[in-house]
């Protein structure tokens, strides 16, 4: 595991260091790319808890990503227009304060995922993949057809939201916010996976019958893991919307769910920093291949195929060892 620790350190150091160099060199777009990597990585870290540690292949995490985005969009659009969010039973104003938005995003994603997970976890295998997809499609069509918040057009927020004491419009400061949240989440995840709950979750994935025999309800373990996973992805969604100053139903599309899965697998399923490495590779591929050819998606497809067929365990798996991460 030593090589993985080394690789993890290098990944985090690079993700923190490159934007600082870019800032000094006057290349703000590199910082924007790094911010995108940090945010997509965060979303992947969330998905990885369900998918990697819990073995719950969710094809619908875009729903939580999008709900986080809409939490930001709705609150900030009300703050922008000076209209209250609700007038009954008490008047609730909109807000452009990031911590409040984050909390709302986490809670909203958590609530939605509680409902979805409670129903979906009755199924297994392919059925689970498909029912999560169905719920995400419902959310997607709801967002498209609901006229109050822009429908298909989405919501534009003209100025990035505030964080006390920082100028979030400055790319490097906003990156710092996202990077800090990523590190905090990673620390939390490492605590969780090492805890009794984390061990039970691993055991539930590998041998649910044995865990049940211990007198533990695997349903509850899975439910908790799924909701926690959705909350992290929801937080990432709020940040992603703030990065783009824009949210639209496309954040909830099934392609987005696919991209999140791609990010997790590219990096290495079940590895702590796998999603971050995966997000880095994905963003770089997208940016580099696009410059080579109009038909860059062919090459992206070929790279993905190659990773699945020949580089099992993703980038981190290749770098660190040949141990299969899915145990």
């Amino acid at each position: 595991m030593n090589r993985e620790t080394l690789a993890n350190t290098v990944i985090l150091a690079a993700l923190a260091g490159i934007p600082v160099l870019a800032h000094l060199g006057g290349e703000p777009f590199v910082i924007t790319l790094a911010t995108r990597i940090a945010i997509l990585g965060l979303a992947g870290v969330g998905l990885n808890l369900a998918l990697g540690h819990g073995g719950l292949v969710s094809f619908g995490h875009a729903a939580f990503f999008g709900v986080g985005g809409y939490a930001m969009g709705v609150l900030a659009s009300h703050a922008q227009a000076w209209t209250p969010l609700a007038t009954w039973p008490v008047e609730i104003p909109g807000t452009n304060l990031m911590p409040v938005i984050w909390l709302t995003a986490i809670l909203a994603a958590g609530l939605l995922s509680l409902v979805i997970a409670a129903l979906s976890l009755r199924t297994r295998g392919v059925y689970f993949i498909m029912i999560t997809l169905a719920f995400a499609q419902m959310a997607y069509y709801f967002a498209i057809s609901w006229p109050a918040y822009g429908g298909e057009d989405g919501l534009s927020i003209y100025v990035r939201n505030r964080f006390p004491g920082l100028n979030t419009l400055d790319p490097i400061q906003f990156f710092a916010v996202c990077f800090t949240l990523l590190c905090l989440t990673l620390a939390l995840m490492s605590r969780i996976t090492g805890s009794r709950f984390g061990l039970l979750l691993q055991a539930t994935r590998q041998n649910p019958a044995r865990v049940e025999a211990l007198g533990v309800q695997t349903y509850r373990i899975r439910l908790f893991a799924f909701v926690l996973s959705a909350m992290v992805t929801g937080l990432a969604g709020a940040l992603y919307a703030d990065l783009n100053r824009f949210v639209s139903p496309s954040m909830m599309s099934w392609q987005m769910s696919g991209e999140l899965i791609v990010i997790v697998i590219l990096g290495g399923v079940g590895r702590a920093l796998g999603p971050v490495a995966g997000a880095g590779l994905y963003v770089l591929l997208e940016n580099q291949l696009g410059g080579i050819s109009d038909h860059w998606q062919i090459f992206l497809g070929a790279v993905l195929l190659w990773v699945v067929l020949f580089a099992r365990g993703g980038v981190l798996g290749m770098l660190c060892d040949r141990r299969s991460a899915d145990g």
Partner: peptide, 14 residues
């Protein structure tokens, strides 16, 4: 199933 989803997703792109 995870590998299958990803590989066939890649095939769609191609």
């Amino acid at each position: 199933h995870l590998d299958q989803v990803l590989a066939t997703f890649a095939l769609i792109l191609i």
